[in-house]
């Protein structure tokens, strides 16, 4: 391009110059476009995130901090929050194991149906939690296919704690597993092979080589799991029924409170969930940087 211009006859030069001009204005337009895009993103974030949070804070201060506090500290609200925290704890613990084992199976092993398992693990991302809840109702609900069996065993799943657990586990299944599968793929097998040639057993290899390399990713996946479990609404509503003091979670509590126009409790709880989310987001952000660093040390 440059050479062409250098040797170009004078007659051609103006044309070249015009072309260059055209390119420059295109560059300007690109820059302007980037600024505009940036502005749109900021505006969008403001509307979608800060707007509601701001409105929430404004609403809470309008109602009065005292009233909101007493509503949030009342037994029904605390029980609902406790229920949500229990579900978070269970899904974090279960996903730590299931996610790790599932990811290793998916990435490190070849078996019949591996592709199917991978697709199934992603299913909860694609399907609405309400639909999942309904599907489970058809299976284990009062009129469900398995109802006689459950009755005979005197097991109560729907509209009981097990129902909440099943719904939450289902919607949180992909997060840890996907994150770990990605990182396992990324770090490859050579360190594990090195460990084997050095005499390490499968367990020693996992514990001393694989696990330290995926630890950050596991934390990241579990944080996403926690956030998802905390925020789940559809599946826990359909399978749990939001019975106050029994199957009501923080999210269904908010729904019911707003429905009953008990706004102090509803907005207060929303603010609590918002605050927890902010903490989780901050932790995620922190781990994201650590993960990037860890992967950077790959070779």
């Amino acid at each position: 391009m440059r050479a062409e211009r250098d040797v170009g006859a004078p007659a051609i030069a103006p044309v070249e110059a015009a072309k260059l001009d055209a390119r420059d204005t295109r560059g300007d337009r690109l820059a302007a476009g980037r600024v505009a895009l940036g502005a749109v993103v900021v505006l969008y974030l403001a509307v979608v995130l800060l707007g509601p949070m701001g409105a929430l804070v404004a609403e809470v201060s309008r109602i009065g901090i005292g009233e909101v506090l007493s509503a949030v500290l009342a037994p029904p609200a605390l029980e609902a929050l406790g229920m949500s925290i229990a579900l978070v704890a269970i899904s974090v613990v279960v996903n730590a194991f299931v996610g790790t084992i599932g990811a290793i199976a998916l990435v490190r092993h070849r078996f019949v149906g591996r592709g199917l398992l991978g697709a199934l693990a992603d299913l909860p991302l694609a399907v609405s939690p309400v639909m999942i809840g309904l599907a489970f109702l058809l299976l284990v609900g009062r009129e469900g296919v398995l109802a006689p069996v459950l009755e005979a065993l005197d097991w109560k799943i729907v509209y009981a704690f097990p129902g909440l657990v099943i719904g939450t586990l289902f919607v949180t299944l992909p997060y840890t597993m996907r994150e770990l599968a990605y990182v396992l793929e990324e770090i490859g097998t050579s360190e594990e092979e090195a460990a084997a040639t050095l005499g390490a057993s499968a367990w020693q290899t996992f514990w001393h080589v694989t696990f330290p390399n995926v630890r950050v990713a596991l934390g990241y996946g579990l944080l996403m799991t926690a956030a998802r479990a905390l925020g789940e609404f559809g599946a826990v509503l359909v399978l749990g029924g939001s019975i106050s003091g029994q199957t009501q979670t923080a999210t269904t509590f908010i729904h019911d409170a707003v429905e009953e126009r008990a706004l102090a409790g509803g907005y207060g709880m929303a603010l609590v969930l918002g605050a927890i989310s902010v903490v989780l987001l901050a932790l995620l952000e922190h781990l994201k940087h650590r993960r990037a660093r860890a992967l950077g040390r790959t070779k």
């Binding site: 050579s190 460990a195 084997a196 040639t197 050095l198 005499g199 390399n213 040390r297 070779k299």
Partner: peptide, 30 residues
Amino acid sequence: RARAIGFVFQHYALFRHLTVEENVAFGLDV
């Protein structure tokens, strides 16, 4: 693991989270 071999990989395959000394000691530690 039971062949009593040593393998040097093309791209080293060192354990990135262990120190050099821990890397070398790995086969003895296990």
